[in-house]
Amino acid sequence: KSSGQLMAEWGLDDVDYLFSEEDYHTLTNYKAFSQFLRPLIAKKNPKIPMSKMMTVLGAKWREFSANNP
């Protein structure tokens, strides 16, 4: 499932962030990516359980990696 599908299924607000060329150069591993995106997700979904946060971050990382030029 996509991150958007997961968040909709769980009734969470998705984070629409348009990644720049620079993001693809600086966010080169999962740790850097999650440190960048986790606060954005948490801000829109302050009560998100950690298990769902990790699942969403994993899905967003897969999508980000697939779109990386």
Rank of each mutant, 00 (worst) to 15 (best):
T26F: 09
K1T: 07
N29S: 10
L27D: 00
W61C: 01
L40F: 12
L37S: 14
M50T: 14
D16H: 09
N67T: 15
L6D: 05
E21H: 08
P49S: 15
N45I: 01
K31A: 11
K31V: 09
E9Q: 13
A32V: 10
L6S: 03
R62D: 08
I41G: 03
S2A: 08
D13M: 12
W10G: 02
Q35F: 02
Y30K: 06
Y17T: 03
F19S: 03
S34A: 13
A32S: 13
M53D: 05
A8W: 09
G4F: 14
W10T: 07
F19H: 05
S2R: 07
A32R: 11
N67E: 11
G11Y: 10
F19R: 01
T28W: 03
G4P: 08
I41V: 06
H25I: 13
G4S: 14
L6H: 04
E22W: 08
Y17P: 09
A66Y: 10
F19M: 05
L12Y: 15
P39L: 01
K44Q: 11
N45G: 00
K60A: 14
Y24R: 09
L57C: 10
V15L: 09
D16K: 04
D14Q: 03
E9D: 14
T28L: 10
M7K: 03
A8H: 14
S51V: 01
A59L: 13
D16E: 13
K31W: 08
D23M: 04
A8K: 15
W10H: 11
A42G: 04
N45H: 07
D13T: 15
E63L: 04
G58A: 14
S3Y: 08
L57F: 01
S20C: 09
L27I: 11
D23C: 03
W10R: 05
A66V: 08
D23V: 00
Y17V: 07
F33R: 00
L27H: 01
Q35G: 10
M7V: 04
Q5E: 11
Q35H: 06
Q35E: 09
L57W: 01
P46N: 04
S2H: 14
N45S: 00
G4D: 13
D23A: 02
D16I: 03
Y17C: 06
F33G: 00
Y30A: 04
Q35W: 04
S3W: 04
Q35R: 12
S34M: 05
S20N: 07
Y24A: 05
M54F: 05
L6I: 14
T28A: 09
Y17G: 04
Q35K: 09
S3C: 07
Q5S: 11
D13N: 15
K44R: 09
N45F: 01
H25F: 12
E22S: 13
N45V: 01
Q5M: 11
A42H: 10
L18E: 11
A32E: 13
S51F: 05
M54L: 15
Y30N: 02
E22H: 14
T28F: 07
S51A: 07
G11N: 09
